[in-house]
Amino acid sequence: MDSTLPSGPAVRIEGLDKRYGSFHALRKVNLSVERGERIVICGPSGSGKSTLIRCINRLEEHEGGRITVLGTELNDDVGNIDGIRREVGMVFQHFNLFPHMTVLENCMIAPMIVRKRPRAEAETTARRFLAKVRIPEQAMKFPGQLSGGQQQRVAIARALCMQPQIMLFDEPTSALDPEMIAEVLDVMVTLAAEGMTMICVTHEMGFARRVADRVIFMDGGEIVEEAPPEEFFTSSRNERTRQFLSQVLGH
């Protein structure tokens, strides 16, 4: 990794507060993520987990508290926001691939127009990451011609082409048919093994057990519990956590 990077945690969140009208989405959330750390965030719907990671790259604006990403504070400074977004990749529940571009163009556009890389270099990078997510042969197809699992892997490749330092995953497997979940999780496991800093909102508890350094349980806009996976799954202290776990692991 680049030696000129500022030291300190990858993401530091202090006293984060967010409301939608009268709904209190996040209440004084504190979270620190080290470089290379893999975090899994889970919790019932409406608990604020998606809002939390969408605040990290400013898809949501926070109202109180401080967010520092890679040493830069997120505030109204557009330069800061753009700088952070270049270094933070994101994968969405509904893929959000650009339907009017081929798979290859989806992967090339941001490196070319945001990072100003030459076309040839962007294409080489794009093909390398498409090979990494195991769909190099789909490069010239349009997103609409691919299965959900393939689309999500393209979305991961698209984010990786910007060569980000942090990856955010917002329920990446929730919109997939069951038989396609594994192919996406496999890619995420490989990525984790390579030392990528990852923050994943997911209900895939097997994935959490296998790769997470810490599992975070949120409810009602608060972090209720955070622990390493073995401890989290076997001896969670909080009643709400145990209830949630019995629901997602029960079947």
């Binding site: 270049r86 990749g89 994101m90 969405f92 941001a110 945001v114």
Partner: peptide, 18 residues
């Protein structure tokens, strides 16, 4: 155009005009 399209573009660091 779904809102997710613009969000994905934002997350990739594209400017408003891009």
């Amino acid at each position: 155009v779904p809102a997710g399209q613009e969000e994905a573009a934002m997350a990739l660091g594209m400017s408003y005009w891009q």
